[in-house]
């Protein structure tokens, strides 16, 4: 398993995927830093209250996190998607699996390798972005590790899904399905918020069910919660219409949901192993 994980990380580095991601992240952080600097300087010059400046920066951070979360999801989907399918299609897997290597070890090795790359990228880029914004504006989320953890968890969920699909679908197919599912899950989250504001039980039920089928949107709420300044909760409170905003969360995802996410990853990985074992080469 470790050999395959090392191989996977090496593949990402040799194929320059890793370096493209790093360069893109540095560019994005540089642009973000420049934008925040302009925003803060202009606002302060015009005598805007410091609290308002911090609120503005926190909202910018949330939008950036949303975009970054999407990029991360795409990265996870399109790295995970060919990881198994391409090896099976091209014949690379034939020589590997004729060795004393269990199919489960092959799959878990692939997962572990991609996990290191994706989570490393998520943590590195998000931490860098927050550090730069903090340095420029003086605002840092109260517990920066919370949004970073939820962002990484979101990527892990999508990565696991695409890897599982990769045991059955062709290389591009798995990635496309995962990205569409990610978009639908987010949309279901938005509709759930609307449902709560208008007491539409059906919408709430669909949203909740979607959150358990694919927990990416629930994890996104964790990212938002972690990026909000503490004082905003006192101001907004449990306002029903605030709940319709997909860029606002008044509370972190409950512990039960987080436990479900862990279980979800384990179950999907288990199903992927079963599919891989049954696969005729």
């Amino acid at each position: 398993m470790i050999t395959i994980a090392r191989l996977t990380i090496g593949e990402a580095a040799r194929k320059k995927v890793l370096w493209v991601l790093v360069i893109l992240a540095v560019l994005a952080v540089a642009l973000t830093g420049w934008g925040v600097e302009r925003l803060v300087t202009t606002a302060r010059a015009e005598g805007v209250e410091e609290l308002q400046v911090r609120l503005g920066v926190s909202q910018v951070l949330i939008f950036i996190a949303f975009m970054f979360g999407f990029v991360l999801a795409m990265t996870a989907a399109f790295m995970g998607s060919p990881a198994i399918a391409q090896d099976l299609e091209s014949g690379v897997a034939l020589a590997l699996l004729a060795r004393p290597l269990r199919r489960s070890s092959f799959l878990l090795g692939r997962w572990l390798g991609l996990l290191v790359v994706t989570v490393g990228y998520a943590i590195g880029s998000a931490a860098l972005a927050m550090a730069v914004v903090g340095l420029i504006s003086g605002y840092l989320p109260p517990r920066p590790w919370i949004p970073i953890t939820f962002l990484a968890a979101q990527a892990v969920v999508l990565l696991t899904l695409t890897l599982a699909l990769s045991t059955k679908l062709p290389p591009i197919g798995g990635g496309a399905v995962a990205v569409v599912a990610y978009g639908l899950a987010w949309l279901a989250g938005v509709l759930g918020g609307v449902g709560r504001a208008f007491n539409a039980d059906a919408l709430i039920a669909i949203s909740n069910a979607t959150r358990y089928i694919l927990p990416t949107d629930g994890l996104w709420r964790g990212v938002v919660y972690g990026l909000e300044p503490s004082f905003i909760f006192a101001v907004v409170g449990d306002n029903e219409f605030a709940q319709t905003n997909p860029f606002f969360a008044s509370s972190p995802p409950p512990g039960g949901f987080i436990a479900w996410c862990v279980l979800w990853v384990a179950v999907v990985l288990g199903l992927a192993i079963v599919a891989m074992r049954r696969r005729e080469l």
Partner: peptide, 28 residues
């Protein structure tokens, strides 16, 4: 046991000696 598949493909991003080294790892 050694095996040369009919559909032979090896990681194009590895060097020849690294491919053999990978299989050496897998076979212990």
């Amino acid at each position: 046991v050694g095996y040369l598949p009919e559909l032979f493909r090896y990681q194009p991003w590895l060097r020849a000696r690294e491919v053999v080294d990978l299989h050496a790892d897998l076979m212990g």
